[in-house]
Design a protein around this nucleic acid. Sequence first.
DNA 1: CTGATATTTGACCTCTGATTCAAGAATATC
DNA 2: GATATTCTTGAATCAGAGGTCAAATATCAG
Lengths: 200, 200
Amino acid sequence: MSYRQAMGRPKQFDEDTAIAQAMQVFWTNGYAGSSPAELAEAAGIGKGSLYHAFGSKRELFGRALDAYDRTGAELIEELLSGPGSTKECVRTYMTTLVDTDFDAPVRRGCLAVNTALELGGRDADVALAVRRLTDRGVDLLAARIERGRLEGDVPASMDAGAQARFLVAAMAGLRVMARTYDRDAVLKVVDTTITTVFGA
Amino acid sequence: MSYRQAMGRPKQFDEDTAIAQAMQVFWTNGYAGSSPAELAEAAGIGKGSLYHAFGSKRELFGRALDAYDRTGAELIEELLSGPGSTKECVRTYMTTLVDTDFDAPVRRGCLAVNTALELGGRDADVALAVRRLTDRGVDLLAARIERGRLEGDVPASMDAGAQARFLVAAMAGLRVMARTYDRDAVLKVVDTTITTVFGA
DNA sequence: CTGATATTTGACCTCTGATTCAAGAATATC
DNA sequence: GATATTCTTGAATCAGAGGTCAAATATCAG
């Protein structure tokens, strides 16, 4: 069946684009630090339209977090399925995240980490969303390590799940560290992490 | 020389006590989330007195962060100078922090970590303060590991400084994780961390 | 007691945040 | 064209934030 134009005045902006813009604002300024006025301006629409389309700041944030989840998962998959050993892949993954952060004009870290800290304790729905997002990352990492284990890339004794959880937690820590230390300091810790987990 | 009572009406509250109360509020609600009204009420004084004594919310926060620094350093020293092997000491240190967090009615993590994320990117002074505070922790941990190295507690090949930096970053990650995961999940990662660093 | 100095207080002020809304604009159906 | 429906917008609303201030209060020095 063919879709006919919906009745009424047609939307003059794309929701997904608006969400992507809002995501950038939330990512840079945090939830509380992002005003409806800013969000609307970034999306190129009026405040009213924003509320009409998304209901509330909180709902918009939920959508932005979902979008972040999707693009983030894509990036991890891409980086972990690249060439090289397990160790090299994981190192590339970690250094890429760190470098991307430092290459940006503002150090904004990871939206999930920022959100966990800002809202994780007060908003159960957000906490669950962040947890799901984190679990996804853990699973992808675990799968890559397990692959390495089967291929003889990493010791057969390694617990892929445990190491994956550990690495994701470590990444969160690096994201925090990146707020107050410089690139070199953070990259050195990446090095220590990789060496400690996978051996010299 | 003896101190005479200063001229004028004497202060009716203790600054350090007020700072300690303010620290609790900032710790629980974050910087932006703590209103002058709340801070004054927690300190048991009027808003006016608070501004008279501390100048601004920002300055009060600086003092609160200093207080946190001092008490935090004391705790680390105490835990790391306890009995047991290096591995046991570090484990005790990490589990104590995690347990303390989960035993509290609200999960508020570590004020330094929270601050790094909330203000680290925008306020250079705060970033420096957090960095100093972190460095202090790193140094104390490094000293304990170095002691273990000399006592044969840990492998002679271990780089105490690098491992200390790594452990502090990992702790930051655990603090983030504690916002969205439960106690068991976090303690398991502590276990993985300790085992990975110090061996099984 | 009379200043002089410091502290305390809540009322007050200004600004911004999140949200709602009435009016207008663009499209569909008939 | 008339009517229904949906989207757009900035003005209006209400609350709360951060900060200031004058008046009241409590101590000093002479």
